[in-house]
């Protein structure tokens, strides 16, 4: 990559309150998650989760992975772990195709959300996302695509920025190379 989009992404994401870590490989990322995740952890099953056996990796590392219906995991589960489709450097945004309900529950309900991003999927800016967004919308199947930029926030009381309103209070972005450069999968 000729431009500095990875560095730019890290800077933008940190500015909005995300924690960004470059990790050597998936095992290291799993270790990082195991260290920070507390309580029930939701890990929705997706093609990349299956390919890398992420659930087993997390479980073996001691993470309390929920093995029943996510709706039965309590109203405030401890953590959610997902991969991402792609990201955008200008705003520090990660994009996650979330049509499967479990992905939505794992990224809206928990106190903290861990999201694994392949740096090869970082786009230079929001406008560059138009093409993959259009591709994700091909056909007419129902779709739910989430842009996530930092943790949940509000300024509704006295205009004071407060983190952690209705969504995750903490957002951890783990950069792991060679996961998948396909923007259509997560």
């Amino acid at each position: 990559m000729t431009d500095n989009r990875v560095e730019r992404f890290i800077e933008s994401a940190k500015r909005v309150g995300a924690t960004v870590e470059k990790t050597e490989n998936l095992e290291e990322a799993v270790k990082y998650i195991a260290d920070k995740a507390k309580g029930t952890t939701l890990v929705p099953v997706t093609p990349l989760v299956i390919r890398y056996g992420l659930k087993a990796l997390l479980q073996n590392a001691g993470v309390e992975v929920l093995n029943k219906q996510f709706r039965d995991g309590g109203q405030f589960p401890g953590a959610g772990v997902t991969f991402s489709n792609f990201a955008m450097a200008d705003t520090g945004t990660v994009v996650l195709e979330s049509t499967d309900e479990n992905i939505r529950l794992a990224t809206t309900l928990p106190e903290r959300h861990f999201i694994i991003v392949d740096p090869a999927t970082i786009l230079v800016d929001n406008l560059a996302a138009a093409a993959p967004m259009n591709a994700l919308h091909e056909g007419n199947a129902p779709k739910f695509i989430a842009y996530i930029t930092g943790p949940s926030r509000t300024a509704d009381i006295e205009r004071v920025l407060t983190i952690g309103c209705h969504g995750p209070r903490e957002l951890y972005i783990l950069l792991v190379e060679n996961i998948s450069s396909d923007l259509m999968e997560n």
Binding site: S12, V16, D90, T91, G92, T93, N126, M133, H137, N140, P142, K143, F144, I145, A146, Y147, I148, T149, G150, P151, S152, R153, G167
Partner: peptide
């Protein structure tokens, strides 16, 4: 620069 969430639903 962007809000925490932009959600696209169809």
């Amino acid at each position: 620069l962007l809000t925490s969430y932009v959600t696209w639903i169809r």
